[in-house]
């Protein structure tokens, strides 16, 4: 069986009456890092949210490891092994760092591996261990992003969706985030990442999709896209 980890087929999706995605087709294969890039409002976040069943789907199908999960509710998709680091991090600010991580391991499957997962995320982010009992709302931006990633990892995902994980972070921390992403691939996690840092993400990713106004307009090897004149003009000049 060589089914993709994630496959979106002929997706038309949006929010209520507001249609955002038009016939989006994409796939993420096991072990890959795939980048999804595009201008503000293109529909990148909507694409990730659709993979987790958090939008209105008008047409199309979502497959996870070959299984049709189009009708599966969000919390059960997480149980199946998809996790997301949402745009803006979405950490539970009144809870402690530790409680955020516990919440990440909410599913039965994840709860069984709780100790193991804690050890893993604490070696990945030693800062979080130091701040274990701190209220999450008092973390710095970089620490909060680490927590958001760690919390997603606590669910033991096979597929991790990252929505602009480096947004608003200092350049040094941005590099740290990309290091973590590479490290996760070594751990066998498949990754779909939405990024503003187009250059960084194309250098890290295997393949990439470019989205504009709800449509995929370009796709291919990340390295060849790096040299694409059209893309260079649109993004890399900044």
């Amino acid at each position: 069986m060589c089914a993709s980890m994630l496959e979106l087929k002929g997706i038309h999706a949006g929010y209520g009456e507001f249609r955002v995605l038009h016939d989006v087709n994409m796939h993420v294969d096991k072990g890959e890092i795939v980048a999804l890039i595009g201008p503000n409002g293109a529909g990148k976040t909507t694409t990730l949210r659709t993979a987790l069943g958090m939008t209105t789907l008008y047409e199309g199908k979502v497959f996870f490891k070959g299984e049709d999960i189009t009708k599966v509710p969000t919390h059960k998709r997480v149980e199946k092994g998809i996790a997301m680091v949402p745009e803006g991090r979405g950490i539970f600010t009144p809870l402690t760092v530790y409680e955020n991580l516990l919440a990440g391991a909410y599913t039965k499957r994840a709860e069984e591996k709780l100790q193991d997962s804690l050890e893993f995320v604490f070696t990945l982010f030693p800062r979080l261990k130091e701040r274990k009992n701190q209220i999450a709302g008092t973390l710095s931006g970089g620490e909060a992003q680490m927590l958001a990633i760690a919390r997603a990892l606590m669910s033991r995902p096979e597929l991790l969706l990252l929505d602009e994980p480096s947004l608003g972070l200092a350049p040094k921390i941005v590099l740290e985030v990309f290091d973590v992403i590479k490290r996760l691939r070594e751990e066998g996690v498949t990754i779909l990442i939405v990024e503003q840092h187009v250059k960084n993400s194309l250098e890290t990713a295997d393949r990439a999709y470019v989205m504009e106004t709800g449509r995929i307009v370009l796709e291919g090897e990340a390295r060849s896209l790096l040299k694409d004149e059209r893309l260079k003009k649109a993004y890399l000049v900044i």
């Binding site: 919390h75 997480v78 539970f92």
Partner: peptide, 18 residues
Amino acid sequence: LAIRATSANRMVAPLMGI
């Protein structure tokens, strides 16, 4: 914990499997 997490952010809670 599920109640407090959902109270804190109901959009993100389902992403925990809640």
